[in-house]
Design a protein around this nucleic acid. Structure first.
Lengths: 191, 191
DNA sequence: TCCGAATGTTTAGAATTATCAACAGATTTA
DNA sequence: TAAATCTGTTGATAATTCTAAACATTCGGA
């Protein structure tokens, strides 16, 4: 271990609690009401002016709700960015006529990968079908996309969607004459 | 969720702390000394007569040592049985002349599988080599065992050992004229 | 058996935490 | 602008936790 480790911003209980509370959009008073403690107690804890008893912390977390194990385990720093602008997407190369833009920078330690994809007319992921672990789903935004899943094939229109286990061989292609845009998700991230 | 869930024996902090302390073979006084608290405090906490503050619990766990996250996450109930008699092994069928006896009953939620294996003369796991995820290792106790790992093959004598990634095709057989006994381990459990 | 050491438990008091109510600043509403 | 919230913070007091020391019990060894 290096001594100057990348500091987790919420090593102290107070900051950690404040982060959680704000992520869940609660005020000190609202959380206090749900948990059955006073707002003052939460204030003092969040300022690290007192170290709560397990029973108090348990009550407070119950109002979120969150278990002690989740509270101490979850990496809230990883969830620090909740909203992503166009500039916060990462382009993933997949041929010249397929654009895949991933929400966020790195999928390390994430359970989900969300993509904004564009298939130009004629684009095709190829005859040797894709296969990987996990599950995936997508919804067509505009244009048409021909999706082959195992033995089944269908051309999806805007508003339609697919969902399948990713270990079933699959293939995507745009047989129309206008670009196809879709939003898709993989779990766990496949690249 | 069912209401009458299988009760984890250490849902309360006190019992949980007592289990951990005893697993690590510490007395209240010894742990208190290491942690910089009094033995009385530990006694009261273990009896659930007080609910420790986070700072106290953190100090105490530091003396074990264990992090708060580990303390609340780890399933100590799974590690309740620490020692296993001959009767605590589970026989795993693997042909008539190969005996595999596993330490413990079930490998659910375990990271490691420990086996006591006996290969009768002529025993062979077969030409179509074994492959699975994880890693495995073993030490020969008596007799000889011919181990094939990928392109390499070697006949091991008592005291010798192997260690390889289990996704490399592998095969075991006893070409000698006396039974071969060995101890082996898989991580994660392969069956 | 008796003694000594080791273990966990208990009690009174010091230290810390939680409550209640009041306070100050920011935002909304009339 | 002023009134009315709503936010987080703070002080005095009540409640709880932690310490220090004594107590009770068990286990071995002389």
């Amino acid at each position: 271990m290096s001594a100057a480790e990348h500091t987790p911003p919420a090593d102290d209980i107070g900051t950690r609690l404040r982060m959680v509370r704000q992520i869940y959009g609660l005020t000190q008073r609202e959380l206090a009401r749900r948990a059955g403690v006073t707002n003052g107690a939460i204030s003092l804890i969040e300022q690290n002016r007192v170290s709560p008893s397990i029973s108090s912390l348990k009550k407070i977390l119950h109002g979120i709700p969150l278990s002690l194990a989740e509270f101490f385990t979850t990496n809230f720093a990883a969830a620090d960015q909740l909203f992503f602008g166009v500039g916060d997407f990462t382009e993933i190369a997949f041929g010249a006529d397929i654009s895949m833009r991933m929400v966020g920078q790195s999928m390390k330690n994430r359970a989900l990968q969300m993509l904004h994809e564009t298939y130009q007319p004629g684009a095709d992921t190829g005859l040797d079908m894709l296969r990987h672990t996990g599950e995936e789903a997508g919804i067509i935004i505009s244009g048409c996309l021909t999706v082959t899943i195992g033995a089944q094939e269908r051309t999806l229109q805007p508003g339609q969607a697919y969902y399948f286990r990713s270990d079933i061989p699959h293939r995507f292609r745009n047989q129309g004459d206008e670009p196809c845009v879709l939003i898709s998700a993989n779990s766990p991230p496949s690249f």
